[in-house]
């Protein structure tokens, strides 16, 4: 999924995020009919958007919870009947060793590693870019943008091609230096190496968001501060620790939380790798498991329960996100 395309556009927003500009002043001078319209108009303007969001997000949210309490398969679908089984789906999921030994470790482990790496690489790149002269910075920034722009689908296929066991770049190089026999190692077959490739893919696609965001934060820090610190004799590392980190703490927090959300629900990058679309259960994460249960096995109730589990985890992270955000900005 285009995890972070949004954030490019976001930087086009005006740097100020002002509060509402209430029309109170004008309204007082206007005739009563205008005031009535004033009451109705916002709702009129909002109604198409709210309606769409209700149909596309509100109703499905209710429905997915409903389905998660049902044994809902192709038969129920054909007859249009409900088939409530209470908490059975949740019981099955939560007591299965598959969740605890495979899916959850895959999901959480992968997300944690990806977030840590994305933040490290992104921050390092941002700090580095900040030291570059203008022309060099623009050049590097364009390259970073390209990494960001490559769609998840095509990016994943490139990695599948790079690691193709027979003719891929990596396999060929390792064969040439005598480390492996051509075609003898299939990295997609084994869980650990599968996720190593997925991590590389996701980090390579995700670090630009962090780099660009942190860089924009870094550029708001007055240069004089660094110069003063330098005169005081602080080393580069010390300047980073004592100046950059505290100033950019909110930026780091937001980047971390957003990356966490994205990396938890990664679907495309896993599903499109060999074995990720059902061939190899060892590599499922929550999103893929939910999709396979429903659309490959026809167990929509079960799939919904897994989706609810994923949503709940993400909502918890969102709560943290909202808290961070609200402490920084008034609506």
């Amino acid at each position: 999924m285009s995890s972070s395309t949004a954030d490019v556009a976001q930087h086009a927003t005006p740097p100020t995020t002002p509060g509402p500009t209430p029309a109170r002043r004008g309204a007082l001078r206007r005739p009563p009919s205008w005031r009535r319209a004033q009451h109705r108009r916002p709702w009129l303007l909002l109604s198409p958007g709210l309606l769409l969001l209700a149909v596309l997000l509100g109703f499905p949210l209710v429905r997915v919870v409903q389905l998660s309490f049902q044994d809902y398969g192709l038969r129920e679908l054909a007859r249009g009947e409900d088939n409530y089984v209470g908490l059975e789906n949740y019981r099955e999921i939560l007591t299965s060793s598959f969740l605890w030994q495979t899916v959850l470790p895959n999901t959480v482990g992968f997300a944690v590693v990806c977030v840590v790496l994305t933040m490290l690489v992104g921050t390092a790149v941002a700090v580095f870019l900040n030291t570059l002269p203008r022309t060099w910075r623009t050049l590097c920034l364009t390259a970073v943008m390209i990494a960001w722009a490559v769609p998840a689908v095509t990016g994943t296929y490139v990695y599948v091609w790079l690691f193709d066991p027979l003719n891929g770049l990596v396999s060929t190089v390792l064969t040439d230096v005598g480390l492996i026999d051509r075609g003898a190692v299939n990295w997609f077959a084994e869980r650990f190496s599968f996720y190593a490739i997925a991590t590389l893919n996701v980090v390579q696609h995700g670090f630009p968001f962090v780099a660009v965001t942190v860089l924009s934060g870094l550029m708001t820090v007055p240069r004089e501060l660094y110069e003063a610190a330098q005169i005081d004799g602080a080393s580069a590392w010390r300047r980073f620790r004592s100046l950059t980190v505290p100033i950019l703490k909110p930026v780091f927090a937001v980047c971390t939380i957003l990356s966490t959300i994205w990396d938890f629900k990664v679907f495309t990058q896993i599903y499109l790798m060999p074995g990720g679309n059902g061939g190899n259960p060892d590599v499922y994460n929550l999103g893929v498991w939910s999709y396979i249960e429903s659309f490959a096995q026809g167990r929509y109730g079960m799939g919904s329960a897994i989706a609810v589990l994923l949503t709940v985890i993400l909502l918890l992270i969102t709560v943290v996100y909202m808290r961070t955000l609200f402490s920084e900005e008034e609506l």
Binding site: M1, S3, Q10, T17, T213, W262, E328
Partner: peptide
């Protein structure tokens, strides 16, 4: 995938 609302303005 939806994007983040807005970054907090950094109280630099």
């Amino acid at each position: 995938m939806t994007g983040p609302a807005a970054l907090p303005a950094v109280p630099a």
